[in-house]
Amino acid sequence: MPSTAAKDDRISIRTPPELKRMLIAAAAVSNISMTDFLLNAARKAAETVLAESRQITLNQQEWDRFMDLLDNPPPPNAALRAAMQRHHALLD
């Protein structure tokens, strides 16, 4: 999945020799350059990490509590009322 965008930025990394040999071999087996191999692997890992950081997982008890709060929200407290007043002041 080589990118057609300009490749102006550079990343330098140090690696143990055995890992470098493994990366070179994996890139060769994949029939792509080591740069493209590393970029593809890094992109996949970054996408996974970012997707997981944006996802919230709830157990059944937490889900039930969440749904109950949506159906029966607590009354506004002082901090929420103050925030709404500031918001309305900005809109006026």
Rank of each mutant, 00 (worst) to 15 (best):
N59H: 00
P16Q: 09
A82L: 09
M84S: 07
A28D: 12
A89T: 06
E47W: 12
A89C: 04
L90H: 08
K44Q: 14
F66P: 01
D64S: 12
A41F: 03
A41Y: 02
D8G: 10
M84G: 01
M67N: 11
I11E: 04
A79D: 07
A41W: 00
Q85R: 12
E62V: 02
D8V: 11
R81T: 11
D68H: 15
A83C: 04
T15G: 03
M22A: 10
P73W: 01
A82C: 06
L19Q: 02
S30L: 06
P2A: 05
L23A: 04
A46F: 09
A82Q: 09
A28P: 00
T4G: 07
P17I: 13
A6R: 07
L69C: 04
S12L: 12
A27M: 08
L58Y: 07
L91K: 10
P73Y: 04
P73H: 03
A46S: 14
R43S: 11
M1Q: 06
D68Y: 15
S33E: 06
M22K: 11
A27Q: 01
L23E: 00
D36W: 02
A42N: 02
Q85I: 13
E47P: 05
Q55F: 11
T35G: 06
S53Y: 09
A25G: 11
R86V: 02
P2Y: 03
A89K: 09
P74E: 05
L70S: 01
H87T: 12
A25H: 10
D8N: 13
T57K: 09
L38S: 04
A26C: 11
N59C: 04
S12R: 06
M67T: 13
A5T: 08
L58K: 08
P75K: 04
N72Y: 09
A78H: 08
P74G: 00
N72A: 05
M34D: 00
I24C: 09
N40C: 08
R65Q: 12
R65A: 15
K20N: 11
P16R: 07
M84Y: 14
L23Q: 02
D9C: 11
